[in-house]
Amino acid sequence: MTKQTSLTCKCGQFTMQVEGPHIASVECLCNSCRKAGAVLNTLPGAAAVVDEKGATPFVMHRKDRVRILSGAEHLREYRLSAGAGTRRVIATCCNTPVFLELKGGHWLSLYGQLWTDGDRPRLEMRTMTGDLEQPANLPDDVPNLKQQSLSFYGRLFAAWVRMGFRSPKIVVNGELNV
C-alpha cells in the first residue's frame, strides 16, 4: 500500500495529501529563499520560514502525487519580482507557506513546517550553501552543497521519467502582495 500523508495549514482550513515517497528532504540556503522567507515572516501570525542558519526546509514531492483536499480558495502566490520564475504559495487563512514551485517544474517543494518535527522526513542535504557569507558555520550532519549536485538533479530527473515527462499544473487563484 502506498503511504499517504495529510498536511494542513496552521488553522486547518487548507488541507492536502501527499502520496508515496518524497524526492528529497532538503534545506535551501539560496539568496532568494532567504529573501522571500524574510518577507513571508512579516505576515500576521506567520511562523518562521527561515531558521537560525538561514535555511528553509523543504520536502520535495512529485506534482502528480500531491492533492489539494480543501481550502484551495485561500491559496495565493508570492513572487519576489513580477517576472520571477519561482512562486511561493501561501494559505492566506493563517499565512502558512505551503509550497514553492519553479516554472515548468514537475515537482513541488513543500515547506517543511507543514510536518510536525517528528513526522517530517529526515533531512538529507543542504543546498546552495555557496550563497552564504559563512558556509563553514553550518553543521556537518548532512552534505552542505554549494549548489545542487548531480545526484540531486538525478533524483529530479528519475521522478520526471516515472511521471512520463509530464508537469501537471497547480492552479492558484490570486496573488499575495506584500
Rank of each mutant, 00 (worst) to 15 (best):
G154F: 06
E124K: 04
M163L: 14
G112V: 00
E124F: 05
D119W: 02
V142A: 07
S151H: 10
M125F: 14
D117T: 03
Q147W: 11
A159Y: 04
T127S: 10
R122C: 15
P139G: 11
L114M: 07
F152K: 06
L108S: 01
G112A: 02
R122T: 11
L150W: 15
F152A: 10
W115N: 01
E133I: 08
G130S: 03
S109N: 14
D119V: 04
Q134L: 14
T129Y: 03
P139F: 08
L108E: 00
P143C: 03
L114Q: 00
W160A: 00
L150Y: 13
M125Y: 14
V161Y: 09
P139N: 15
M163S: 14
H106V: 08
L138G: 06
Q113E: 12
Q148P: 12
S149P: 07
L114S: 00
S109V: 07
W115M: 03
R120T: 01
E124T: 08
T116Y: 08
V161E: 08
L145V: 11
E133Q: 07
D117E: 10
R162V: 05
T129D: 03
Q134F: 10
L150C: 13
P135C: 05
M125H: 10
W160I: 01
R162H: 07
L156G: 03
L138F: 13
R155Y: 06
N144F: 00
D140N: 13
L114I: 05
L114N: 00
G154H: 05
R155W: 04
L108C: 05
S151F: 15
L145P: 12
R122H: 13
L132E: 02
F152C: 11
M128V: 09
T127Q: 08
Y111I: 04
Y153I: 06
K146E: 12
Y153M: 11
Q148W: 12
S151T: 15
W115K: 02
V142G: 10
L150N: 12
G118C: 13
D131M: 07
G130R: 04
Y153K: 12
L108M: 05
E124M: 07
G118V: 13
N144W: 01
T129E: 03
D119R: 04
T129W: 01
Y153N: 09
L123Y: 03
Q148A: 14
D131C: 10
R162L: 06
Q134H: 14
R122V: 08
L132G: 02
F152N: 07
L114K: 01
T129R: 01
L145A: 12
P121L: 00
A158Q: 10
W115V: 01
P143V: 02
G112I: 00
D131N: 11
W107A: 07
T129F: 03
Q134V: 11
D131R: 06
G118Q: 12
D131A: 06
N144M: 03
P121N: 06
N137T: 15
N144G: 04
L123M: 04
L123H: 02
D119S: 09
G130I: 01
A136K: 08
M125E: 13
P139E: 08
R120M: 02
P135F: 04
P139Y: 10
R126N: 06
